[in-house]
């Protein structure tokens, strides 16, 4: 089936099985490998992408469900100035260790700050609760979100 959608502001049309996981389309068809697979069952959040600005697990999303919609991966976000602010905040706080959860964490952070530019610690923890990290104990990531928020991403 021919399915069109927008990825990182580029329109693409692919002839694929509609049940194919968005994650496999992104990694194996489009070769955008910043989106990671940590579990394939919607538990870890490493495969987070934004669909119409909302974070979703691309491992649970069949490609047909993003037809005619906007998808953003870390490869798209990293071209923005908001990314720079978030990434600098992660660097400042040590929010990235092994790096496997990091693209997902950064996308969720972006979506959160866009909706809620000055979240409380509780709101940050809540927003990140579907993205598992095994390295940091979350503290550094949460602090990074705070720093990014203070830097005032005018989103």
């Amino acid at each position: 089936m021919k399915i069109s959608f927008t990825i990182n502001n580029n329109k693409v049309t692919l002839d694929v099985d509609p049940s194919m996981r968005l994650l496999d389309v992104i990694r194996n068809e489009l070769h955008l490998t910043g989106t990671k697979e940590g579990c394939g069952e919607g538990e870890c959040g490493a495969c987070t992408v934004l669909v119409k600005g909302e974070p979703v697990n691309s491992c649970l999303t069949p490609i047909i469900n993003v037809a005619d919609r906007d998808v953003m991966t870390i490869e798209g976000l990293r071209e923005t100035k908001e990314y720079r602010i978030i990434a600098d905040a992660f660097a400042d706080r040590g929010g990235s260790q092994c790096g496997f959860c990091t693209p997902g964490m950064i996308l969720v952070t972006y979506a959160l700050l866009k909706k809620n530019p000055h979240p409380s610690e509780e709101e940050i923890r809540f927003a990140l609760s579907g993205n598992l990290c095994r390295c940091t104990g979350y503290q550094a990531i949460i602090d990074a979100v705070k720093v990014a928020s203070e830097k005032g991403i005018k989103l």
């Binding site: 099985d17 049940s19 194919m20 996981r21 496999d24 194996n28 697979e37 394939g40 069952e41 919607g42 697990n57 491992c59 649970l60 999303t61 069949p62 469900n65």
Partner: peptide, 22 residues
């Protein structure tokens, strides 16, 4: 009937890179 798919995609998941086993 496939809506959001968050249950079906787990139940029918086969392996990374493969189509779900519908």
């Amino acid at each position: 009937i496939f809506a959001g798919g968050t249950d079906l995609m787990v139940q029918k998941h086969k392996s990374s890179g493969l189509l779900p086993a519908f």
